[in-house]
Computed example of a mutant assay.
Amino acid sequence: MKPRIIVTRRWPAKVEKLLTERFDAVLNADDVPLTPADFATAFQAYDAILPTVSDRLPASVFPPEGCRTRLLANFGVGFSHIDVAAARDRGIAVTNTPGVLTDCTADIAMSLLLLVARRAGEGERQLRAGAWKGWCPTHLIGTKVSGKKLGIIGMGRIGKAMASRAHFGFGMDVVFYNRSKVDDDEIRLISARQLPSIEAVLAESDFVSLHCPGGAENKHLIGEARLSVMKPTAFLINTARGDVIDETALIHALDKGVIAGAGLDVYAEEPAVPRGLLARENVVLLPHLGSATTETREAMGMKALENLTAFFEGKPAPDRVV
């Protein structure tokens, strides 16, 4: 018999077709998020669950016993929404989809940087509202990007891709912080400098882009103290995970002029966005679009499919994290 699996949200049609061909698959045609009760039931009814970043799987939804599920094949590279300790305790494997969303996420990060620096969001809203009075020398004066300094927090695949775009596309100097030493051809090619602390990167940079993992270890990595280290003319960009930033501290910093603005694609309690961010003109807000291209979303689905197939054929899953 084919392994029985449940897909928690709509996936690209090409991937869903292959899933139904290879597995006894239950799809979510209505694309309504599963409830905690739904997940508790799914753990006892399916051999594999295919969650996404929009699904929360804390320890409380894992059954204490009688668990049928053997694999959580996550659609996405980040897996901080899954209690991996609870999965490990029950012998459930967890896989993710790294690598395939690098370029598109870096593109969105660079887009946010440009949008907030050049006040493009403000300008579009003004024009659509019929409030534009025509060109004048002092209208919506923004911040030049070319030649400025970019700070990267987390120099993994996406951090490097962002740094490359900034350096080669806009002549930006790059400094970065990473927990481990990073010294390879990519870093040397862009003449990036690794600094000893997050604070050192924040203090030097005109733009700071976050590319570190989410989860408990990095929760509120950027809070009041670290925001205060940034230049008052600097901008903060986040395409990593929402909980990496203390959103209350960020709103306070924006209110007080501690930093100049922010570009955000992710939020701590998605889809909820704090009113203090929604109300600000110097913040660009996107609805978690980092990987939202046809090519990338299909590639993510194919990665999950590869992990599923390998696992149930008794082979090592290529992207196993637990």
Rank of each mutant, 00 (worst) to 15 (best):
Q126F: 06
K256Q: 15
D55P: 14
P274L: 12
F79W: 12
V100F: 12
M1H: 11
V7K: 00
R22M: 11
Y177N: 03
S54I: 07
R22D: 04
R280D: 12
T309F: 07
F311H: 14
V174C: 07
T102N: 06
G76T: 10
L202V: 10
R241Y: 06
W11P: 01
V145P: 03
L227H: 11
D183Q: 10
H81Q: 15
L254M: 01
A260D: 09
V273P: 10
I92T: 14
I158K: 06
E306S: 13
V266W: 08
A304I: 02
S164N: 10
R275Y: 05
I222M: 08
A304D: 05
W135Q: 10
D243K: 12
D206Q: 02
A292P: 02
V32A: 07
R4M: 07
E124N: 07
F176G: 03
M302N: 14
A37I: 06
I245D: 01
L210M: 05
F207G: 11
D319Y: 10
I222R: 03
L113R: 01
S180V: 07
K160L: 07
I92P: 12
A117G: 05
D184F: 08
R241M: 08
E313I: 02
D31A: 04
V26M: 08
I92H: 13
T97W: 06
S164I: 15
T105C: 04
I245H: 05
T233R: 00
F170S: 03
H167Y: 11
V174E: 04
D255G: 02
K144A: 13
K148P: 02
V32N: 10
K231F: 14
H211R: 04
R68L: 13
Q126N: 10
R275G: 03
L50H: 05
V61M: 04
P33W: 00
L50R: 00
G301H: 00
C212V: 15
D103M: 01
F312A: 09
A279T: 12
L286C: 07
V145R: 01
R165H: 08
D89V: 08
D246S: 14
R275Q: 15
G123F: 12
R241T: 01
K160T: 13
L250G: 02
D55M: 14
G171V: 06
D103N: 12
P271S: 13
R4I: 09
V77Q: 10
R188T: 14
F235C: 02
F43N: 09
P274E: 06
L278Q: 10
L114F: 00
R118I: 09
S191T: 09
K2T: 09
L50K: 02
V15H: 05
L27G: 00
